[in-house]
Every structure is written in structure tokens, then in C-alpha cells.
Design a protein around this nucleic acid. Structure first.
Lengths: 343, 343
DNA sequence: CTGAAAGCGCTAACAT
DNA sequence: ATGTTAGCGCTTTCAG
């Protein structure tokens, strides 16, 4: 595989007439080594083209300084923000990140967990797939003392904290905003109710309706995959409804945008006929016309907090198990798609 | 760190009164082991809670079965497709992927390359950052015989093939399409001309203008970061131009969409006043109104081909150095944003 | 501040 | 079809 022979700390040691131990320490800013020796070591290391062997180190020290991350997909601006936040904190604390996608499949997620397990990650941060069922797949990690932390889409487990937003309140705020605009017949396009993020938002939707004295109608909650196709399909369903709804709350901006455009292409006026609000504050919400009202939540911060929490546990500064969940702030952003003012 | 003591192949060997070698082979589908023994081994392994130690294996075998991927960002639908393609091929060939983002920074990219190097990736696939300069940062890998392959945003190096589309032709097609619609005063919003993807598209733009007998005007080429802000900034610049351009070709759909919306917000009619065409066939191009004409290119396929190429080299089936580049098909997609028909 | 010795868990090479 | 031996390159432990 490799054309040149690898340089080891023994080669450096021989050259400098030192022991391998000293070289190892010198390469690592160990305080027991004098500045002078340290400099000689690093200089020769560079000169000889030495590269650190992570495997030997990990094998010996039984620590990998690696944190695993499993997410449904990386192609959303929210996830991209989360990862950026995690990476920053991890890098600063000298941890590497291994990132893998479940592509919304519980099976693929289970494989990813296993791979992370075999790769001996020091800890794991997960936002679970659409159809994940139960938490048993994490037991092997927990039994070996590998901490697991959930963010955004969480599971309930006494050992695993979750970093979340208040989805119920956000769902309430979104629905309440439509009600305040005079909507009386509001659809909620949501996802698998096993996922906290969607069931909580549904609860918020329901409580806002209840507060306004509007009876809950099960046909007005659409459980979907929340992808582009779902947006289009929902639009078609909505067009068949009679009377038409006068407001739509969608748990994902991308899905909302697709739904909205399809309706507009069919002659529906937004927000005059139907008011819209999405979720995530994805860049797309600012670009479409009418601009999409939405709920904003802080991806970068969520990633940073998750990583910080996990790393402080790994470093023994703070036990993760004492935390149940950390709730971040979310915010209603009003744009044209919901400003119908029917009152 | 770990609460239980790790089970090794020696533990399994002792329990079954076999040698560690046999256990190692049995765990690996080595044909030299009888089915019966194999089954006994795997059963006991599961029972004892054995987990394979990647580090010991890598240390000994000097192979990691890991391929590194460095990309500018993962938050685009194109990159997401590329990664999905790579992951599929890699998984099937029993390779793992380590993915990292340069966030368009050459410095961060250099750090990533170093990390990949230390992690002893068997090979590396890279789409370079916006401002990457030269190829020297890859030399350390190449010197150790680690193959490097570029995709989409490539660098010129005799040892490193590139998987690309014909950017010049695509730029030509986009510009030519605007010309065919009767545009005579066409802006090209592009990126760093050191990047093949942008300089080639610029060449295509220039050749289409030349063919139409239109003189090239340097002020009509905007070199930008091609992000959302750039789209807005360009719109502001365009509004100050006199006469206004009648066509805009943008090297990125997201930037194009932002530019277009800003212009429309300022009263410009698209495509009547200014025709627009983007690049990438990002989902956003289908959602905005008018729908954005664009150039489509196959992300999943690009990822698959890149991974296949690299892996067949690693497996010794095909030498990578004999290939200079592989060019995939790209395609003009006409939507409403460019249908002005001024002829 | 530095060193000697041992061993992390696996697999390659060479037996049998 | 299975076993023996040795060693991958590092860090830990104990000793100076």
C-alpha cells in the first residue's frame, strides 16, 4: 500500500539517542519534557516525515478522542448548522467527529450505531430517523459506558439527555398566530407521531385550537414524510376538501413551500385564501413569494451545546446522566404567507 | 472509560480450545475454516459480547478500509446526492467513509487533509474549497501512495483524476439559451476563476457571446462567493446599471434565486425585463416563481463513479493514474425564468 | 526530567 | 483445516 516505510517514534528516538517514551512525551506537550528536548524532537519528526499512528495510540490507550454523530440527512440548512456547531466545539476540545446519515431509515441507523460501536467512539450524538422504534439498539453502547446524547429528534432514556426546543410551545405559537389572523379551519401537516418533534407540535396545535374554542378534527392532521412530494400530495388533498381550509401549519419549510406553490399553481391565493406557516426558518422560506412565516430555531447553538455537554462528561467534569433535557429558545417569524388579517 | 472488560479473540479461543488465528479467520469468512467451526466461533462471540477491534486490526494489517471525503459544504442537494452515491458504493465494497467539510476555507481544508492523513485513509476524494491554492497539500498523501481523486471542483495533478461535467459546454448552453431567447446584454455571475467549474463556465459564456457576435464586456462578469448574500448584492449592482441587462446567468441556483427575488422586489419583471438561468437544478429552482431554468447534473452518479474508480484502484483492479478525467453528462432545463422570447 | 519493559488485540508468515 | 510465532507503534507503569 505505502511506498515508503513509515517513520516511528523509535526511529526518531534512535536518531536523537533518546528513548521512545521521551519522544512520545515530547510530541505530546507532556510537561515532564524540557523545552529544548521537545524542540529537537518535533524538528526531527518533521524532517523525517513522521506521522502519528492513531491506531497504535488508540489500541494502547483505549481512547479514541472520536465522537460519533448520526443524523437523518445532512442536506438541510438546519443540520448543516448543527454540524458546524458540533465541529467547532469538538475541534477545540481535540475531538474528531465521525458523521453518518441514517437517511431516515431505522435499519440504516442501526447499522451506523454498530459501526460507531466497533469504531469505539468515546460518545455518540444522535437525531433519530423517522421510523426508529425503541431505544434497545443503544444498549450495547451504554453498557460499555459510552454516553449517548440525543438532539432535536430525541428518544426517552434515563441515561441519555436530549437537547431540544419546546416543540409544543412552538406548535402552539404557530397555530395561535394563524388563529390571531382570523383562521378558523387550520390543517396541520406533521410527521410520525412517535417522533417527539412532531407529536409535541401536534399537542401545541391542539391546545391552541382548544383555547380558541375550536373543535379538533382528526381529518385536519396529515401525517406525512414531510418531504417535497408530501407537500405536493397534501396540496392535492387540500384542493379536494370542502370547505377549503383557511390556514395550514406545516412542520417543515421545504414541505410547506412545495405545498404552497402547488396550491398557488391551482389558483389558490396565499395568504388571502389560505394562510401558511412552516417550521425551521430554512433559507427557502425567505426566497419564496409570499415569503413563508415560520418558527426559527438555533441549529449552531444546538450543535455546540450538545457537543459541549458530551465532552464535559467525557472529561469527567460533569455527569451527563443528571441532565434530562436542555431546552433552547425558538421563535415565531412572521412573513407574508400568513398575513391575511381576516378579523 | 469502559465498565466491562473487553472480550478478545483470545478469550473466544480459550473457551473453544482453538487458536486465536482460527478465531480471527472464523470471524472473517475465511474459506480455510470449516462451516462448523465458523458457527461455533460466531456463536460464542455473540454470547460473550465480543466486539471487533478496528485499531488492532488496522495497526497490524496497515489497511484501514476507510476512504476520506472532503467537500466544501454538505448543505446542498447536489452534495447530498454525491455523498449518497459514494456511500452506497463504498458500503457495498466494505469501505467506510469519513466525511469532512472545508466550509470553503483552504486553511480548514488543509487541516482536514492532515487529519485524513493521520487517520491513514486508504484513499481520498476531494471537491476543493473556494480559495484553495495549488496542490502541494496533497503531496504527503501521494508520496505515501495514497490515491487522491477530485470531483466537481478539481485541481490539475498528473496523479489525480477528476470526475467532472463539461462545464464549458454547460456554460455555453446556458448562455446560448438566453441568446436564443433574444437576450443581447447578458450578465454572468460566477465564482473564483481559479476553480475549474467557474472558469470553464465563463469560457462557455464567452464563446457563446462570441458566436453571436456580441462583444465581451468585463463589467458583465461578476466574480462572487455565489452565496445568498452575493445574490442580493448582485441584484443591487444590476439595479444601478444603465442600460439594465436583459439576461443573467448565475453559476448557482441558490444565488440565482436570491438575486432574482431581490430584483423582483424592486419591480423588475422576470423574465420579461431580465431572463434568468441558474446552475445545479437544486430543488429551489422548481419552487420559486417563475421557476428557474438551470443546468442539471447527476450528483448521485458522480459520487458512485468517483467511489468506484477509487476502490477499483485500491483493490488493484485498475490503476487510477491512467485516467485523467471522467466527464459526465449535463443537461439544460428550461423553465419560466428564461422564456421571454424577445425575437 | 528520562528510560526499560511490557502489552494493547490483531493478523501475516510460516508451519503442520 | 488449524496452530505458532512474532510484531504492528504506541503508551503505561515503574524505576531511576
Amino acid at each position: 500500500m505505502y511506498s515508503e516505510k513509515e517513520v516511528t517514534i523509535y526511529d526518531i528516538a534512535k536518531r536523537l539517542d533518546l528513548s521512545a517514551t521521551t519522544v512520545s512525551r515530547g510530541l505530546k506537550d507532556n510537561p515532564a519534557i524540557s523545552k529544548k528536548t521537545k524542540k529537537r524532537i518535533t524538528d526531527v519528526a518533521v524532517e523525517m516525515g513522521y506521522r502519528f499512528n492513531t491506531f497504535a495510540s488508540n489500541l494502547r490507550s483505549k481512547r479514541t478522542n472520536t465522537i460519533g454523530v448520526i443524523i437523518p440527512r445532512m442536506n438541510s440548512s438546519f443540520m448543516s448548522d448543527v454540524l458546524a456547531g458540533m465541529e467547532k466545539v469538538a475541534n477545540e476540545a481535540n475531538y474528531n467527529l465521525i458523521i453518518s446519515q441514517s437517511l431516515e431509515s431505522a435499519d440504516k441507523e442501526a447499522v451506523n450505531i454498530k459501526t460507531m460501536f466497533n469504531n469505539r467512539v468515546d460518545g455518540l450524538m444522535v437525531s433519530v430517523a423517522y421510523n426508529t422504534n425503541g431505544v434497545s439498539q443503544f444498549e450495547m453502547l451504554l453498557q460499555k459506558g459510552v454516553p449517548v446524547l440525543f438532539f432535536d429528534r430525541t428518544l426517552d432514556h434515563p441515561m441519555c439527555p436530549g437537547i431540544i426546543i419546546d416543540n409544543q410551545k412552538s406548535g402552539y405559537l404557530a397555530t395561535r398566530h394563524l388563529l390571531d389572523q382570523g383562521c378558523k379551519n387550520i390543517i396541520h401537516i406533521t410527521g410520525n407521531q412517535e417522533r417527539n418533534v412532531y407529536s409535541e407540535r401536534q399537542k401545541g396545535y391542539e391546545s391552541a385550537l382548544a383555547e380558541a374554542g375550536i373543535e379538533l378534527n382528526k381529518d385536519q392532521t396529515f401525517v406525512t414524510m414531510l418531504d417535497e412530494q408530501a407537500g405536493i400530495d397534501c396540496a392535492e388533498q387540500i384542493l379536494k376538501m370542502s370547505p377549503l381550509p383557511d390556514g395550514v401549519f406545516v412542520d417543515n419549510d421545504n414541505c410547506a413551500a412545495n405545498c404552497m406553490m402547488k396550491l398557488m399553481d391551482s389558483g389558490i391565493k396565499i395568504p388571502e385564501d389560505i394562510a401558511f406557516i412552516g417550521f425551521n426558518n430554512d433559507p427557502i422560506s425567505k426566497i419564496i413569494r409570499p415569503a413563508l412565516s415560520t418558527i426559527s430555531y438555533p441549529g449552531v447553538e444546538m450543535g455546540q451545546i450538545a457537543a459541549r455537554k458530551l465532552i464535559s462528561h467525557l472529561n469527567g467534569q460533569q455527569n451527563i446522566n443528571s441532565t434530562n433535557s436542555i431546552v433552547l429558545r425558538s421563535e415565531l417569524i412572521v412573513r407574508d404567507s400568513s398575513l391575511c388579517n381576516r378579523l
